[in-house]
Design a protein around this nucleic acid. Structure first.
Lengths: 204, 204, 204, 204
DNA sequence: AATGAATGAGTTTTCATTCAT
DNA sequence: AATGAATGAAAACTCATTCAT
């Protein structure tokens, strides 16, 4: 992020190469974990010599950090749909089934788990994760405030934040449930989730 | 997993030695992660030579597996209190604050995160995690069934399971929240959690 | 050493480019040593791409060799002053203080030390160093012969050579003294040097 | 020297292994220089795997430092003979030929040159070299003071130090002469050296 | 039962050199 | 003439595992 970026005369190409590495890293990290994936493995997947990767990243740690940043940024996408909705509270409630399906897909939780484990030991990654969380948090807060205002449901900021934490905990927790119990019944979980979300979203 | 157990003349002592290693491993894994912890580090913490550890474990992976098995089993302990309560639904509801405090303590989520990340890649660990989950699941189901029966709140098995998944997801998700947002307000989260748990526990 | 010179259409320009590289190399070698300086470092200092340098030098070793040759040749400059003096023996004697000051300046001994170390391992460099020494030697011999002739102090060639070796050893040794003892007293060393040089220069 | 020495249960054996490595390093450093010698080369010469060397040394730099320290310490040996002599000034004077022979032997100057070049860039090595120099310096000063006292030739400390510096410069410079001019005439150099040393040793 | 010396394969990283453009 | 992207071989170093004692 910061660091001594090499001066690439063709920044477009450099960006492509960086992305090429990050895409390869995604596959390798997914398959072997951050520490199980070797530079050799990544370079092979990227179709580029290991040495050359160092023209675009200072170290393997820098690749991990860039990868985490890029993938954390994408988390926000889920909120985009809801954001534009006229009645966001209802929109969230209605989209719960889709959200459950999404959260239970292994493709979507393998890498986050790796990231979280890394964050619990590596302060650089922890900072990235937290920064991304602040962003999502703020967006969700804005959405909920608007939704509650529409329906005449004001709420103390601290209370709203507590409810948000619990809602997010449920979503992120579903990742872990998918890992622990691959034979989860999606319909039943969705029904239960509605039960839990209704008061969190709509109660005074 | 079990595999070719060496023939130890004094099986009692062998068990003690294994435990000595697993206790040391816990400290090291917590500090450095499964892959960051070296056999040298573990052997030092265990007060035992690295070579000797191989008399009790086939490989480092076997230590990880044994460690995971042992530590997954302990998760159940949380349920013990509730199990013996006359009105378990109320007991769960009343203990939510304590549960939140517990789930937010880094001491309690560092290792689980490590385990989950490993499980998402290593099928042996995944199987252990799932087996342990089945056990906790069954115990919780029994508790809830008893509680609901007491209050005359029957429920289809599949529906109950869906609610359980969501409740567990919330708890496990709190681990992740603690990681993402270290400045969480415990009181607000507890209040929100009560809001969400009431229907999950008590609704028809 | 000379080897397969590329055919440069504009030999004048080629020479300039070579010099540009050698000047950059001097800075880099001084800072990092022959083996510590990378081609990237040199190319950056030379304001020329690393690849292009290979149009003027066959290899990094060739740069080192060319560098050594050029810088050894310059050693002779010190003798120029004395050479033109009417009474060279007196001139040498009188300039001792200046010489000491010069020899103790790190700027003047860092690179020679690098060269000598390389020469002790690399026969190509050793040959260059020896060839340059022969030249300086011959010039100094001519100066001393003239000086002694003026004063009526003939001496056998072999004896004169012995004295010259000792005088040069003293000078070159001062390089090493500066390295070993950075708090040298210049005045005291100069006085001692005069004591030692008088018989070497003037005794029958 | 300082650093995290591994705890070796058999210190005798550990010392032997360290020495085994240092002896191998001497050969390799002599042949290829500090930076030209690879750990693989050293490990082969030491008859020990490269990895194992790291049980005795923290890094290659630590090997270089240990090597330098050990070899600097030996420099003092030359003074031992003179130290015990009844008339040390005469002893130094009489042993000049032997000293010249010694200083001109490539075996004795290859490694010092390497050390000096390293010292000019590496502060750790520079410190070792300077510390060793202080020791030799102090010993030589004691010898000279005793010798001059015997002969009734008192001298200001600063003046004596200046003369010592010049004498040592000559000796160390002879290393460089041997490198520059392999066909040196030993007898002639010795004669010249006597001419220069007489006043340095004996003048008031 | 217990040690830790020893190995060798594997790790990340650097760098002289080549070559398409 | 000139670039710098790209390579591949080698560097220092780590570590799970073995085995003589």
């Amino acid at each position: 992020m910061t660091s001594k970026e090499k001066n690439h005369p063709d920044p477009q190409r450099a960006l492509e190469r960086r992305q090429q590495v990050l895409d390869a890293a995604k596959i390798c990290f997914s398959r072997s974990g951050f520490h199980g994936a070797s530079m050799a493995e990544i370079s092979k997947a990227a179709g580029m010599s290991a040495g050359h990767i160092y023209n675009y990243f200072d170290s393997k740690d820098a690749i991990i950090a860039a990868f985490v940043q890029q993938n954390m940024e994408r988390v926000g996408l889920i909120l985009s749909d809801v954001e534009q909705h006229a009645d966001p509270l209802q929109a969230i409630y209605d989209s719960l089934e889709q959200s459950v399906l999404r959260q239970l897909d292994p493709v979507f939780w393998t890498l986050p788990l790796e990231v979280f484990a890394e964050a619990s030991r590596n302060p650089v990654i922890a900072a990235l994760v937290r920064a991304a969380d602040v962003v999502s948090h703020d967006r969700l807060r804005a959405i909920l405030l608007r939704g509650r205002a529409l329906r005449g449901l004001p709420l103390l900021a601290v209370e709203l934040d507590g409810r948000m934490e619990v809602m997010i905990a449920m979503f992120q927790g579903l990742h872990l449930r998918a890992l622990h119990n691959p034979s989860l019944d999606v319909a039943a979980v969705t029904a239960a989730l509605r039960l839990a979300f209704r008061p969190l979203l709509m109660d005074k």
